[in-house]
Write a protein that binds this DNA or RNA. Structure first.
Lengths: 146, 146
DNA sequence: ACTATGTTGATAGAGATAGTAGACTAAAGG
DNA sequence: CCTTTAGTCTACTATCTCTATCAACATAGT
C-alpha cells in the first residue's frame, strides 16, 4: 500500500467534513484551509470522492460539500482503496500480474497476502466517526490536528 | 510499502542464491533464468545487493554471485527496506515530511505507524533460511516456484 | 590472447504524481 | 435579468520513478 498526496488529502478532507457533519455544507475553500491543501487540487480530490459516493455537493451560492453517509459508515480502507488503489504491497497478489513463473506456487505470494490482511485489519476497522470521537475526547491542551 | 520489480527481483534472486548457498557462486545469467528476470536489469539489482552487503561477487571467468551471509541472517525486511525504501505507507511517519500541519498531533500518523508495525512484524521475522526450509519441506508434487 | 563474467555510467520510454489554468454550469439574491 | 458565489470539467505541464537497455570497461581463468 502506498498513500499518495491525493489519498492523504482525501482522508483529511473527509475527516474535516465529518467534524462538520451536523453543520451541513462546507466549501472547498474552507476545507482546503483547514487541511492545508492546494484548492484546485482538492477540487479534483473532492470530485473523485463524489464519484465514489463518499460526499455529495450543492452548486451555486451557499453551495459546498458534505458527507454522503454517516461518518460511522465510512472506513479508511474504503477511501484508500478507492483513491490509491489496492492495499497489496505488490501486484502479483491480484490477477493480471505476469512476473510470476507460477502464481499458485510462488512462495512470496502468501507473505504479501499476509501483509495485506494485517493492513486491512487496521484500516477497515477505523471509521471517520471513531476518528471524530478520538478528537473530541482528547484534552483541550493537546488537541489533534488534521 | 510498495514493492517494485526491482525489489521483487532482489528477493527472488536472494532466494535463488540461498537455495544454492552450499554450491557457491551462481552467474547472473543462471539467476536470471531461474527467476525469469531481464539479465541487464538483474545486473543492477545484484550490484545494489552487493553494495548493501547482502551478496558478494567474483569477477572474471568462473565468477558469479553468492550470499554474503548465512540465509538465516537475512530477513525480507532488511532487503525490502534497502531496495524499495521505508515500509511506511506514507512519508509523514518519517522526518522531513512537510504536509502535516502538526506532526505531533496528526491523528492519522498513529494509524500509519500501526500499519508499519504490523507489516514489520511479518517481514522482519522471515529469513531466507525459513523460505528455503519451506521449499524443501514441501511435497514433490506441489513444489514452490520462485 | 581469448573468453566469460562482473562493473559502471548513460540513456530512454512509459507511466504516475502533483499540481495549474481556464472555461463552463448552477443556484441564490437583488 | 444580472451579479456573485461556488462546484464541474477538460486540458495541460512539469517532475519523478520505474523498468529496462546499451556500450564500454575491468577482471580472472585457460
Amino acid at each position: 500500500m502506498k498513500i499518495t498526496y491525493k489519498g492523504d488529502y482525501a482522508l483529511k478532507a473527509l475527516l474535516d467534513l465529518a467534524l462538520h457533519y451536523e453543520k451541513g455544507l462546507s466549501t472547498i475553500n474552507d476545507v482546503a484551509k483547514h487541511i492545508d491543501a492546494p484548492v484546485k487540487f482538492l477540487e479534483q480530490v473532492l470530485l473523485g470522492l463524489k464519484k465514489g459516493g463518499f460526499v455529495e455537493s450543492k452548486r451555486g451560492n451557499i453551495g459546498g460539500y458534505q458527507l454522503a453517509k454517516d461518518p460511522s459508515e465510512i472506513t479508511l480502507g474504503q477511501v484508500i482503496r478507492y483513491i490509491d488503489g489496492p492495499i497489496e504491497p505488490i501486484g502479483c497478489v491480484e490477477k493480471g500480474y505476469s512476473n510470476c513463473s507460477d502464481l499458485r506456487r510462488c512462495i512470496f505470494k502468501g507473505i504479501w497476502q499476509k501483509v495485506a490482511f494485517a493492513t486491512s485489519d487496521i484500516i477497515d476497522n477505523i471509521t471517520f466517526d471513531k476518528l471524530r470521537q478520538q478528537i473530541n475526547s482528547s484534552s483541550k491542551v493537546l488537541t489533534y490536528s488534521i
